[in-house]
Simulated scan of single mutants.
Amino acid sequence: TTLIGFCGAPWTVATYMIAGHGTSDQAPARLFAYREPAAFLQLLNVLVNHSAAYLIRQIEAGADVVQVFDSWSGVLDEVSFEAFCVGPMAEIVRQVRAVHPNVPIIGFPKGAGAHYRSYRQKTGVTGLGLDWTVPLTTAKELQRDGAVQGNLDPLRLVAGGKALADGVDAILKALGDEPLIFNLGHGITPETPIAHVEAMVKLVRSAS
């Protein structure tokens, strides 16, 4: 079994640091970045260095792969996405690979939409995490450039039954013949029944 380590991306972590809690559009962090650009970039740089060090320690503790979650990248405009998501992630990749050049790195810029392909190219990540809104035809195109991860709607897992089985089947049929890390299209929700997780694992393993 492959052990995946992870951390939050600098932009996403910064949004919680600035607002003190999650918001619907992370407006407090966006406003701070616009009004105090030098201070915000300084914060991102601190988070980049600590995130890279954290991932390196996870690898040294036994992680086979590491993943960086940018759960709030989808609220940014194009310029901000490049500055706050792509640039910091590229630097994390550089620092981790300087110490562990052969460990795969997955980047997950949730909600990146049209920016997914350029994100992979500019950051140099090995694998690309996709959220559940990414059409499977688009995911298939992105798979041409390397492994993708995802992208089951977490609420299908909550619902279970046919909704879960249909979602798993669609992803495996569309993406299963090329490099794929089957996963949810974001985090598992607290109300998810454990039995549904067990059922999902069985469905995926039976098809592999």
Rank of each mutant, 00 (worst) to 15 (best):
P104Y: 06
F81M: 01
R35C: 09
R117A: 15
A114R: 15
P28H: 10
D25A: 13
T123L: 05
Y34W: 15
Q42K: 07
L152P: 05
V65A: 04
P104F: 01
A114D: 15
S24K: 15
R156E: 01
P10E: 06
S51E: 10
N151C: 08
V46S: 09
L31N: 14
V96F: 01
A207T: 15
K162D: 15
A98G: 14
G150H: 13
A114H: 14
K122F: 00
H21M: 09
V79Q: 09
L44G: 02
Q121H: 10
S73Q: 04
A53S: 13
A61Y: 12
I188N: 10
K162L: 14
A170H: 06
F84M: 12
G176W: 00
T12I: 05
A165Q: 14
Y16H: 14
T192F: 04
A52V: 03
H196F: 08
G8F: 13
L130D: 00
Q149K: 05
D153V: 05
H50Q: 10
A53V: 03
R205L: 05
A83G: 07
E91K: 12
I106Y: 06
A159W: 04
E60I: 09
P10T: 09
W11Q: 05
N49F: 03
I188F: 11
G185Q: 02
R144Y: 01
L130G: 04
L152F: 07
A199D: 10
Q143D: 01
V96W: 07
T138C: 06
E141F: 04
D131W: 12
F40Y: 14
L31M: 13
E191S: 14
R144S: 08
F32T: 10
S206N: 09
G187R: 10
K202Q: 13
L172M: 13
A63N: 01
G124P: 09
Q26G: 04
E78R: 13
N151W: 03
A29H: 08
P179F: 06
A83R: 14
P88W: 03
D169G: 05
A33M: 09
L142I: 06
V68F: 11
M200K: 05
L152Y: 07
M17H: 09
F81P: 04
A63G: 00
E141A: 14
V125L: 06
N102F: 00
E141L: 11
G129E: 10
A199T: 11
L180H: 11
A9W: 02
H186A: 02
L136Q: 12
V68D: 06
P154N: 08
A207R: 15
L3C: 02
V65D: 04
L164R: 01
K162C: 09
G22A: 14
Q42S: 08
D77A: 13
V68W: 11
P193V: 02
G146K: 02
I105P: 02
Y54S: 12
N49V: 01
D77N: 15
E91F: 04
A174I: 05
T12F: 10
L31H: 12
F40N: 06
A170Q: 13
A174P: 07
G176V: 00
D25K: 10
A53E: 15
G113N: 12
A53K: 11
R30V: 02
Q143T: 05
I18H: 04
N183C: 08
D64W: 03
Y116G: 05
F6I: 12
G185A: 01
S206T: 03
